[in-house]
Design a protein around this nucleic acid. Structure first.
Lengths: 230, 230
DNA sequence: CCCACTTTGTGCCCGCTTTCACAAGAGCGT
DNA sequence: ACGCTCTTGTGAAAGCGGGCACAAAGTGGG
Protein backbone atom coordinates (compact mmCIF):
# COMPACT_ATOMS: atom_id res chain seq x y z
CA UNK A 1 0.00 0.00 0.00
CA UNK A 2 1.59 3.25 -1.12
CA UNK A 3 1.19 6.48 0.71
CA UNK A 4 -2.47 7.49 0.81
CA UNK A 5 -1.37 10.95 2.01
CA UNK A 6 -3.68 11.72 4.89
CA UNK A 7 -3.22 15.47 5.03
CA UNK A 8 -1.85 16.39 8.43
CA UNK A 9 -3.26 19.90 8.82
CA UNK A 10 -6.85 20.64 9.67
CA UNK A 11 -6.95 21.62 13.29
CA UNK A 12 -10.70 21.83 13.70
CA UNK A 13 -12.70 23.33 10.89
CA UNK A 14 -16.43 22.71 11.36
CA UNK A 15 -17.85 20.27 8.90
CA UNK A 16 -20.58 22.67 7.86
CA UNK A 17 -17.87 25.11 6.84
CA UNK A 18 -15.92 22.55 4.86
CA UNK A 19 -19.07 21.69 2.94
CA UNK A 20 -19.32 25.29 1.81
CA UNK A 21 -15.72 25.87 0.87
CA UNK A 22 -16.10 24.33 -2.59
CA UNK A 23 -18.96 26.72 -3.29
CA UNK A 24 -16.83 29.69 -2.35
CA UNK A 25 -14.02 28.28 -4.40
CA UNK A 26 -16.11 28.10 -7.51
CA UNK A 27 -17.37 31.63 -7.03
CA UNK A 28 -13.82 32.85 -6.56
CA UNK A 29 -12.62 31.13 -9.67
CA UNK A 30 -15.35 32.80 -11.67
CA UNK A 31 -14.25 36.14 -10.29
CA UNK A 32 -10.65 35.35 -11.05
CA UNK A 33 -11.53 34.50 -14.64
CA UNK A 34 -13.10 37.92 -14.94
CA UNK A 35 -9.92 39.44 -13.63
CA UNK A 36 -11.43 40.72 -10.39
CA UNK A 37 -8.53 41.21 -7.97
CA UNK A 38 -10.37 41.53 -4.66
CA UNK A 39 -13.86 40.88 -3.38
CA UNK A 40 -15.78 41.83 -0.26
CA UNK A 41 -17.49 39.27 1.93
CA UNK A 42 -20.79 40.88 0.99
CA UNK A 43 -20.28 40.38 -2.73
CA UNK A 44 -18.80 36.93 -2.49
CA UNK A 45 -21.58 35.83 -0.16
CA UNK A 46 -24.16 37.04 -2.60
CA UNK A 47 -22.59 35.08 -5.45
CA UNK A 48 -22.32 31.98 -3.34
CA UNK A 49 -25.84 32.40 -2.04
CA UNK A 50 -25.06 32.62 1.66
CA UNK A 51 -25.17 35.13 4.47
CA UNK A 52 -22.12 37.40 4.56
CA UNK A 53 -21.54 36.91 8.26
CA UNK A 54 -21.48 33.20 7.75
CA UNK A 55 -19.01 33.58 4.94
CA UNK A 56 -16.69 35.67 7.08
CA UNK A 57 -16.86 33.23 9.93
CA UNK A 58 -16.18 30.36 7.58
CA UNK A 59 -13.15 32.07 6.11
CA UNK A 60 -11.91 33.10 9.52
CA UNK A 61 -11.42 29.43 10.29
CA UNK A 62 -8.74 29.30 7.62
CA UNK A 63 -6.95 32.28 9.09
CA UNK A 64 -7.10 36.04 8.71
CA UNK A 65 -6.74 36.36 4.99
CA UNK A 66 -8.88 39.43 4.47
CA UNK A 67 -7.99 43.09 4.58
CA UNK A 68 -10.35 45.38 6.46
CA UNK A 69 -11.73 48.12 4.36
CA UNK A 70 -10.81 46.24 1.20
CA UNK A 71 -11.93 42.63 1.18
CA UNK A 72 -10.21 39.42 0.21
CA UNK A 73 -7.57 38.91 -2.42
CA UNK A 74 -9.20 36.55 -4.89
CA UNK A 75 -6.16 34.58 -5.94
CA UNK A 76 -4.77 34.21 -2.48
CA UNK A 77 -8.10 32.99 -1.16
CA UNK A 78 -8.37 30.47 -3.97
CA UNK A 79 -5.02 29.14 -2.97
CA UNK A 80 -5.89 28.92 0.70
CA UNK A 81 -9.19 27.18 0.16
CA UNK A 82 -7.71 24.73 -2.33
CA UNK A 83 -5.05 23.98 0.15
CA UNK A 84 -7.49 23.37 2.95
CA UNK A 85 -9.56 21.08 0.77
CA UNK A 86 -6.50 19.17 -0.24
CA UNK A 87 -6.91 20.06 -3.89
CA UNK A 88 -3.31 21.08 -4.21
CA UNK A 89 -2.46 17.44 -4.52
CA UNK A 90 -3.95 14.97 -6.95
CA UNK A 91 -6.49 12.41 -5.91
CA UNK A 92 -7.07 9.36 -7.99
CA UNK A 93 -10.67 8.38 -8.52
CA UNK A 94 -12.13 5.12 -9.76
CA UNK A 95 -15.68 4.98 -11.05
CA UNK A 96 -17.42 1.66 -10.70
CA UNK A 97 -20.53 1.06 -12.77
CA UNK A 98 -20.39 2.56 -16.22
CA UNK A 99 -24.06 2.91 -16.98
CA UNK A 100 -25.62 6.21 -17.88
CA UNK A 101 -24.65 7.78 -14.61
CA UNK A 102 -21.13 6.44 -14.65
CA UNK A 103 -20.66 7.81 -18.13
CA UNK A 104 -22.02 11.18 -17.09
CA UNK A 105 -19.59 11.28 -14.21
CA UNK A 106 -16.65 10.21 -16.37
CA UNK A 107 -17.39 12.93 -18.88
CA UNK A 108 -18.12 15.55 -16.28
CA UNK A 109 -15.47 18.17 -16.74
CA UNK A 110 -15.67 19.47 -13.20
CA UNK A 111 -13.44 16.75 -11.85
CA UNK A 112 -10.27 17.02 -13.78
CA UNK A 113 -10.17 20.77 -13.40
CA UNK A 114 -9.92 20.34 -9.65
CA UNK A 115 -7.33 18.02 -8.23
CA UNK A 116 -9.17 14.89 -9.25
CA UNK A 117 -7.84 12.45 -11.76
CA UNK A 118 -10.15 9.78 -13.02
CA UNK A 119 -7.85 6.82 -12.95
CA UNK A 120 -10.12 4.00 -13.99
CA UNK A 121 -13.58 2.95 -15.07
CA UNK A 122 -14.83 -0.46 -14.03
CA UNK A 123 -17.93 -2.46 -14.81
CA UNK A 124 -19.19 -5.99 -14.37
CA UNK A 125 -20.85 -6.17 -17.78
CA UNK A 126 -18.30 -7.70 -20.09
CA UNK A 127 -20.15 -6.40 -23.13
CA UNK A 128 -19.02 -2.89 -22.35
CA UNK A 129 -15.58 -3.79 -21.02
CA UNK A 130 -13.07 -2.41 -23.46
CA UNK A 131 -15.30 0.45 -24.60
CA UNK A 132 -13.73 3.87 -24.61
CA UNK A 133 -15.47 6.33 -22.32
CA UNK A 134 -14.07 9.78 -21.77
CA UNK A 135 -10.77 8.62 -23.18
CA UNK A 136 -10.46 5.68 -20.84
CA UNK A 137 -10.95 2.04 -21.56
CA UNK A 138 -13.55 0.36 -19.37
CA UNK A 139 -12.00 -2.48 -17.40
CA UNK A 140 -13.63 -5.47 -15.82
CA UNK A 141 -14.57 -5.28 -12.17
CA UNK A 142 -12.37 -8.28 -11.46
CA UNK A 143 -9.41 -5.99 -11.91
CA UNK A 144 -10.56 -3.70 -9.11
CA UNK A 145 -7.88 -4.65 -6.64
CA UNK A 146 -5.14 -4.39 -9.25
CA UNK A 147 -6.35 -1.01 -10.41
CA UNK A 148 -6.65 0.46 -6.95
CA UNK A 149 -3.20 -0.75 -6.10
CA UNK A 150 -1.61 0.24 -9.38
CA UNK A 151 -3.16 3.68 -9.70
CA UNK A 152 -3.07 4.46 -6.00
CA UNK A 153 -6.78 5.16 -6.01
CA UNK A 154 -8.02 6.83 -2.85
CA UNK A 155 -11.58 7.66 -3.80
CA UNK A 156 -14.16 5.23 -5.11
CA UNK A 157 -17.31 6.39 -6.87
CA UNK A 158 -20.07 3.82 -6.84
CA UNK A 159 -22.55 4.18 -9.69
CA UNK A 160 -23.69 0.59 -9.81
CA UNK A 161 -27.19 -0.77 -9.32
CA UNK A 162 -28.24 -0.92 -5.68
CA UNK A 163 -27.75 -4.66 -5.41
CA UNK A 164 -24.07 -4.50 -6.28
CA UNK A 165 -23.14 -1.46 -4.25
CA UNK A 166 -22.34 -3.05 -0.91
CA UNK A 167 -20.06 -5.71 -2.28
CA UNK A 168 -18.22 -3.21 -4.45
CA UNK A 169 -17.85 -0.99 -1.45
CA UNK A 170 -16.46 -3.83 0.63
CA UNK A 171 -13.89 -4.61 -2.00
CA UNK A 172 -12.85 -0.98 -2.24
CA UNK A 173 -12.38 -0.77 1.48
CA UNK A 174 -10.57 -4.07 1.42
CA UNK A 175 -7.84 -2.60 -0.71
CA UNK A 176 -7.42 0.58 1.24
CA UNK A 177 -9.87 3.10 -0.16
CA UNK A 178 -11.11 5.36 2.63
CA UNK A 179 -13.44 7.71 0.78
CA UNK A 180 -16.51 6.60 -1.10
CA UNK A 181 -19.04 8.60 -3.04
CA UNK A 182 -22.17 6.51 -3.34
CA UNK A 183 -24.81 7.11 -6.00
CA UNK A 184 -26.59 3.82 -5.46
CA UNK A 185 -29.85 4.00 -3.53
CA UNK A 186 -28.76 1.97 -0.53
CA UNK A 187 -27.21 2.74 2.81
CA UNK A 188 -23.71 1.35 2.79
CA UNK A 189 -22.32 -0.40 5.78
CA UNK A 190 -18.77 0.72 6.47
CA UNK A 191 -16.33 0.85 9.35
CA UNK A 192 -16.04 4.24 11.09
CA UNK A 193 -12.69 4.94 9.50
CA UNK A 194 -14.22 5.14 6.06
CA UNK A 195 -16.06 8.22 4.91
CA UNK A 196 -19.09 7.71 2.74
CA UNK A 197 -20.99 10.51 1.08
CA UNK A 198 -24.26 9.62 -0.49
CA UNK A 199 -25.97 11.32 -3.38
CA UNK A 200 -29.39 10.07 -4.26
CA UNK A 201 -30.98 11.60 -7.29
CA UNK A 202 -34.47 10.35 -6.70
CA UNK A 203 -34.41 11.42 -3.09
CA UNK A 204 -33.59 14.95 -4.09
CA UNK A 205 -36.57 14.92 -6.35
CA UNK A 206 -38.84 13.58 -3.64
CA UNK A 207 -37.85 16.27 -1.21
CA UNK A 208 -38.51 18.99 -3.72
CA UNK A 209 -42.30 19.18 -3.91
CA UNK A 210 -42.58 19.02 -0.13
CA UNK A 211 -40.66 22.17 0.47
CA UNK A 212 -42.12 24.76 -1.80
CA UNK A 213 -45.63 24.95 -0.52
CA UNK A 214 -46.82 28.21 0.87
CA UNK A 215 -45.11 27.52 4.16
CA UNK A 216 -46.70 29.98 6.61
CA UNK A 217 -43.29 30.80 8.01
CA UNK A 218 -42.07 31.63 4.54
CA UNK A 219 -39.21 29.24 4.07
CA UNK A 220 -38.02 31.36 1.18
CA UNK A 221 -36.08 29.99 -1.76
CA UNK A 222 -33.41 27.77 -0.46
CA UNK A 223 -30.52 26.47 -2.45
CA UNK A 224 -28.47 24.32 -0.17
CA UNK A 225 -26.23 21.90 -1.90
CA UNK A 226 -27.37 19.03 0.20
CA UNK A 227 -25.66 17.06 2.89
CA UNK A 228 -26.89 18.00 6.29
CA UNK A 229 -23.51 16.72 7.15
CA UNK A 230 -23.22 14.45 10.14
CA UNK B 1 -52.16 27.69 -16.00
CA UNK B 2 -53.80 24.57 -14.68
CA UNK B 3 -53.84 23.63 -11.04
CA UNK B 4 -50.32 23.30 -9.74
CA UNK B 5 -51.76 21.66 -6.62
CA UNK B 6 -49.93 23.23 -3.74
CA UNK B 7 -50.69 20.67 -1.05
CA UNK B 8 -52.38 22.41 1.82
CA UNK B 9 -51.28 20.27 4.78
CA UNK B 10 -47.84 20.44 6.32
CA UNK B 11 -48.09 22.24 9.60
CA UNK B 12 -44.42 22.40 10.46
CA UNK B 13 -42.30 19.35 9.79
CA UNK B 14 -38.60 20.09 10.26
CA UNK B 15 -36.67 20.20 7.06
CA UNK B 16 -34.14 17.72 8.34
CA UNK B 17 -36.95 15.26 8.89
CA UNK B 18 -38.40 15.76 5.42
CA UNK B 19 -34.99 15.08 3.96
CA UNK B 20 -34.95 11.69 5.65
CA UNK B 21 -38.47 10.59 4.80
CA UNK B 22 -37.52 9.33 1.33
CA UNK B 23 -34.87 7.15 2.91
CA UNK B 24 -37.39 5.62 5.26
CA UNK B 25 -39.76 5.21 2.38
CA UNK B 26 -37.28 3.24 0.38
CA UNK B 27 -36.49 0.97 3.31
CA UNK B 28 -40.18 0.42 3.93
CA UNK B 29 -40.81 -0.47 0.32
CA UNK B 30 -38.06 -3.06 0.46
CA UNK B 31 -39.68 -4.53 3.56
CA UNK B 32 -43.06 -4.50 1.90
CA UNK B 33 -41.68 -6.34 -1.11
CA UNK B 34 -40.47 -9.04 1.26
CA UNK B 35 -43.94 -9.26 2.73
CA UNK B 36 -42.96 -7.93 6.15
CA UNK B 37 -46.16 -6.62 7.75
CA UNK B 38 -44.76 -4.57 10.65
CA UNK B 39 -41.40 -3.20 11.68
CA UNK B 40 -39.98 -1.74 14.86
CA UNK B 41 -38.26 1.60 14.96
CA UNK B 42 -35.09 -0.20 15.91
CA UNK B 43 -35.08 -2.39 12.83
CA UNK B 44 -36.19 0.28 10.41
CA UNK B 45 -33.61 2.69 11.78
CA UNK B 46 -30.90 0.14 11.27
CA UNK B 47 -31.88 -0.39 7.64
CA UNK B 48 -32.08 3.32 7.01
CA UNK B 49 -28.81 3.93 8.80
CA UNK B 50 -30.06 6.31 11.47
CA UNK B 51 -30.56 6.40 15.21
CA UNK B 52 -33.81 4.79 16.32
CA UNK B 53 -34.78 7.68 18.56
CA UNK B 54 -34.36 10.03 15.64
CA UNK B 55 -36.50 7.81 13.48
CA UNK B 56 -39.27 7.75 16.06
CA UNK B 57 -39.14 11.48 16.48
CA UNK B 58 -39.26 11.96 12.72
CA UNK B 59 -42.27 9.71 12.37
CA UNK B 60 -43.99 11.31 15.31
CA UNK B 61 -44.15 14.51 13.28
CA UNK B 62 -46.47 12.78 10.88
CA UNK B 63 -48.74 11.62 13.67
CA UNK B 64 -48.95 8.63 15.97
CA UNK B 65 -48.93 5.85 13.46
CA UNK B 66 -47.09 3.24 15.52
CA UNK B 67 -48.40 0.68 17.97
CA UNK B 68 -46.54 0.35 21.23
CA UNK B 69 -45.26 -3.11 21.84
CA UNK B 70 -45.58 -3.93 18.15
CA UNK B 71 -44.06 -1.35 15.84
CA UNK B 72 -45.26 0.31 12.67
CA UNK B 73 -47.52 -1.14 10.03
CA UNK B 74 -45.35 -1.12 6.93
CA UNK B 75 -48.03 -0.44 4.34
CA UNK B 76 -49.76 2.22 6.35
CA UNK B 77 -46.50 4.00 7.00
CA UNK B 78 -45.64 3.89 3.32
CA UNK B 79 -48.93 5.54 2.60
CA UNK B 80 -48.48 8.22 5.24
CA UNK B 81 -44.97 9.12 4.17
CA UNK B 82 -45.89 9.16 0.50
CA UNK B 83 -48.74 11.40 1.36
CA UNK B 84 -46.58 13.79 3.30
CA UNK B 85 -44.07 13.94 0.47
CA UNK B 86 -46.81 14.55 -2.02
CA UNK B 87 -46.05 11.37 -3.92
CA UNK B 88 -49.66 10.29 -3.98
CA UNK B 89 -50.18 12.59 -6.89
CA UNK B 90 -48.22 12.70 -10.09
CA UNK B 91 -45.68 15.36 -10.74
CA UNK B 92 -44.58 16.15 -14.23
CA UNK B 93 -40.90 16.69 -14.69
CA UNK B 94 -39.05 18.29 -17.56
CA UNK B 95 -35.34 17.71 -18.00
CA UNK B 96 -33.44 20.46 -19.72
CA UNK B 97 -30.02 19.67 -21.09
CA UNK B 98 -29.71 16.21 -22.57
CA UNK B 99 -26.00 15.65 -22.27
CA UNK B 100 -24.56 12.73 -20.40
CA UNK B 101 -26.14 13.74 -17.16
CA UNK B 102 -29.52 14.50 -18.66
CA UNK B 103 -29.52 11.09 -20.30
CA UNK B 104 -28.59 9.42 -17.05
CA UNK B 105 -31.45 11.17 -15.33
CA UNK B 106 -33.92 10.34 -18.07
CA UNK B 107 -32.99 6.68 -17.89
CA UNK B 108 -32.87 6.58 -14.15
CA UNK B 109 -35.58 4.18 -13.11
CA UNK B 110 -36.07 5.63 -9.66
CA UNK B 111 -38.23 8.45 -10.89
CA UNK B 112 -41.11 6.78 -12.61
CA UNK B 113 -41.57 4.34 -9.78
CA UNK B 114 -42.34 7.21 -7.44
CA UNK B 115 -44.93 9.74 -8.41
CA UNK B 116 -42.74 11.38 -11.00
CA UNK B 117 -43.47 11.37 -14.68
CA UNK B 118 -40.81 12.56 -17.03
CA UNK B 119 -42.87 14.65 -19.38
CA UNK B 120 -40.28 16.11 -21.66
CA UNK B 121 -36.62 16.33 -22.58
CA UNK B 122 -35.31 19.60 -23.95
CA UNK B 123 -32.00 20.70 -25.37
CA UNK B 124 -30.57 23.64 -27.24
CA UNK B 125 -28.39 21.55 -29.53
CA UNK B 126 -30.43 20.96 -32.65
CA UNK B 127 -28.22 18.05 -33.64
CA UNK B 128 -29.72 15.95 -30.89
CA UNK B 129 -33.24 17.32 -31.11
CA UNK B 130 -35.44 14.49 -32.31
CA UNK B 131 -33.25 11.79 -30.83
CA UNK B 132 -35.05 9.19 -28.77
CA UNK B 133 -33.86 9.05 -25.17
CA UNK B 134 -35.58 6.81 -22.65
CA UNK B 135 -38.51 6.52 -25.00
CA UNK B 136 -38.98 10.24 -25.37
CA UNK B 137 -38.14 12.44 -28.28
CA UNK B 138 -35.80 15.30 -27.44
CA UNK B 139 -37.42 18.62 -28.21
CA UNK B 140 -35.85 21.98 -28.84
CA UNK B 141 -35.50 24.36 -25.95
CA UNK B 142 -37.57 26.92 -27.86
CA UNK B 143 -40.59 24.78 -27.10
CA UNK B 144 -40.05 25.08 -23.36
CA UNK B 145 -43.02 27.29 -22.68
CA UNK B 146 -45.33 25.17 -24.81
CA UNK B 147 -44.18 21.99 -23.15
CA UNK B 148 -44.54 23.29 -19.61
CA UNK B 149 -47.99 24.55 -20.41
CA UNK B 150 -49.10 21.52 -22.33
CA UNK B 151 -47.76 18.88 -19.96
CA UNK B 152 -48.50 20.82 -16.80
CA UNK B 153 -44.89 20.52 -15.72
CA UNK B 154 -44.29 21.54 -12.14
CA UNK B 155 -40.70 20.47 -11.67
CA UNK B 156 -37.77 21.47 -13.82
CA UNK B 157 -34.49 19.61 -13.77
CA UNK B 158 -31.59 21.66 -15.05
CA UNK B 159 -28.73 19.60 -16.44
CA UNK B 160 -27.33 22.22 -18.78
CA UNK B 161 -23.88 23.76 -18.77
CA UNK B 162 -23.43 26.39 -16.09
CA UNK B 163 -23.69 29.27 -18.51
CA UNK B 164 -27.17 28.36 -19.64
CA UNK B 165 -28.63 27.46 -16.28
CA UNK B 166 -29.84 30.84 -15.09
CA UNK B 167 -31.67 31.73 -18.26
CA UNK B 168 -33.31 28.32 -18.44
CA UNK B 169 -34.31 28.72 -14.83
CA UNK B 170 -35.81 32.13 -15.49
CA UNK B 171 -37.86 30.77 -18.34
CA UNK B 172 -39.10 27.89 -16.22
CA UNK B 173 -40.18 30.23 -13.48
CA UNK B 174 -41.71 32.51 -16.06
CA UNK B 175 -44.17 29.84 -17.04
CA UNK B 176 -45.13 28.79 -13.55
CA UNK B 177 -42.65 26.16 -12.44
CA UNK B 178 -42.03 26.47 -8.70
CA UNK B 179 -39.59 23.65 -8.06
CA UNK B 180 -36.20 23.34 -9.65
CA UNK B 181 -33.55 20.69 -9.24
CA UNK B 182 -30.27 22.18 -10.37
CA UNK B 183 -27.29 20.10 -11.44
CA UNK B 184 -25.41 22.98 -13.00
CA UNK B 185 -22.53 24.33 -10.95
CA UNK B 186 -23.96 27.78 -10.34
CA UNK B 187 -26.09 29.34 -7.66
CA UNK B 188 -29.41 30.20 -9.22
CA UNK B 189 -31.11 33.44 -8.49
CA UNK B 190 -34.79 32.91 -7.83
CA UNK B 191 -37.66 34.62 -6.07
CA UNK B 192 -38.46 33.28 -2.59
CA UNK B 193 -41.57 31.51 -3.81
CA UNK B 194 -39.50 29.12 -5.89
CA UNK B 195 -37.68 26.24 -4.31
CA UNK B 196 -34.33 25.28 -5.73
CA UNK B 197 -32.40 22.22 -4.68
CA UNK B 198 -28.87 21.96 -5.87
CA UNK B 199 -26.87 18.85 -6.49
CA UNK B 200 -23.27 19.40 -7.36
CA UNK B 201 -21.30 16.34 -8.25
CA UNK B 202 -17.88 17.89 -8.12
CA UNK B 203 -18.57 19.57 -4.81
CA UNK B 204 -19.41 16.27 -3.20
CA UNK B 205 -16.10 14.98 -4.41
CA UNK B 206 -14.24 17.98 -3.08
CA UNK B 207 -15.71 17.60 0.38
CA UNK B 208 -14.79 13.95 0.53
CA UNK B 209 -11.04 13.95 1.03
CA UNK B 210 -11.29 16.67 3.65
CA UNK B 211 -13.42 14.69 5.99
CA UNK B 212 -11.76 11.34 6.36
CA UNK B 213 -8.47 12.31 7.79
CA UNK B 214 -7.61 11.00 11.17
CA UNK B 215 -9.76 13.60 12.83
CA UNK B 216 -8.66 13.63 16.47
CA UNK B 217 -12.28 13.81 17.59
CA UNK B 218 -13.04 10.76 15.51
CA UNK B 219 -15.76 11.99 13.20
CA UNK B 220 -16.57 8.38 12.35
CA UNK B 221 -18.06 7.21 9.07
CA UNK B 222 -20.80 9.53 8.06
CA UNK B 223 -23.32 8.85 5.38
CA UNK B 224 -25.54 11.86 5.14
CA UNK B 225 -27.36 12.25 1.88
CA UNK B 226 -26.34 15.85 1.53
CA UNK B 227 -28.29 19.05 1.79
CA UNK B 228 -27.41 20.93 4.94
CA UNK B 229 -30.79 22.33 4.24
CA UNK B 230 -31.45 26.02 4.62
C1' DC C 1 -57.13 -10.32 36.07
C1' DC C 2 -52.40 -9.48 36.64
C1' DC C 3 -47.76 -9.39 35.43
C1' DA C 4 -43.75 -9.34 32.53
C1' DC C 5 -42.15 -7.78 28.30
C1' DT C 6 -41.90 -4.96 24.16
C1' DT C 7 -41.88 -0.74 21.78
C1' DT C 8 -43.56 3.89 21.01
C1' DG C 9 -43.70 8.86 21.89
C1' DT C 10 -41.37 12.67 24.08
C1' DG C 11 -39.22 15.76 27.78
C1' DC C 12 -34.78 17.36 28.45
C1' DC C 13 -30.12 18.51 27.70
C1' DC C 14 -26.17 19.33 24.92
C1' DG C 15 -23.51 20.80 21.12
C1' DC C 16 -23.26 22.70 16.63
C1' DT C 17 -24.78 26.54 13.33
C1' DT C 18 -26.47 30.64 12.13
C1' DT C 19 -27.15 35.40 12.70
C1' DC C 20 -26.67 39.88 14.81
C1' DA C 21 -24.16 43.64 16.10
C1' DC C 22 -20.07 45.99 16.92
C1' DA C 23 -15.24 47.09 17.94
C1' DA C 24 -10.92 47.15 15.71
C1' DG C 25 -8.25 47.72 11.52
C1' DA C 26 -7.09 49.60 6.93
C1' DG C 27 -7.17 52.84 3.23
C1' DC C 28 -8.01 57.58 1.38
C1' DG C 29 -8.66 62.40 0.76
C1' DT C 30 -7.53 66.69 2.63
C1' DA D 1 -1.99 63.91 10.94
C1' DC D 2 -6.86 63.58 11.24
C1' DG D 3 -11.26 62.03 10.45
C1' DC D 4 -14.43 59.52 7.32
C1' DT D 5 -15.76 55.42 5.25
C1' DC D 6 -15.52 50.77 4.35
C1' DT D 7 -14.93 46.05 5.69
C1' DT D 8 -13.20 42.38 8.46
C1' DG D 9 -13.14 39.37 12.48
C1' DT D 10 -15.58 37.84 16.48
C1' DG D 11 -18.24 37.79 21.09
C1' DA D 12 -22.71 36.70 22.36
C1' DA D 13 -27.37 35.14 21.68
C1' DA D 14 -30.79 32.53 19.50
C1' DG D 15 -32.26 28.42 16.96
C1' DC D 16 -32.12 23.80 15.44
C1' DG D 17 -31.22 19.15 15.52
C1' DG D 18 -29.56 14.85 17.78
C1' DG D 19 -29.70 11.42 21.31
C1' DC D 20 -30.58 9.67 26.03
C1' DA D 21 -33.61 7.83 28.95
C1' DC D 22 -38.05 7.05 30.69
C1' DA D 23 -43.06 7.03 31.30
C1' DA D 24 -47.03 5.54 28.82
C1' DA D 25 -49.31 2.16 26.13
C1' DG D 26 -50.10 -2.08 24.12
C1' DT D 27 -49.38 -7.47 23.81
C1' DG D 28 -49.44 -12.08 25.40
C1' DG D 29 -49.13 -15.77 28.84
C1' DG D 30 -50.73 -17.83 32.98
Amino acid sequence: MTRRTPRPRERGIPEATVARLPVYLRALQALDDQGTPTVSSEDLASIAGVNSAKLRKDLSHLGSYGTRGVGYDVEYLIYQISRELGLTQDWSVAIIGIGNLGRALANYGGFGSRGFRIAALLDADSSIVGDKVAGLSVRHIDALEDVVEGEDVSIGVIATPAAAAQSVCDRLIGCGVTSVLNFAPVVLNVPPSVDVRKVDLSIELQILPSTNNESPTGTAGRSGSGSPGA
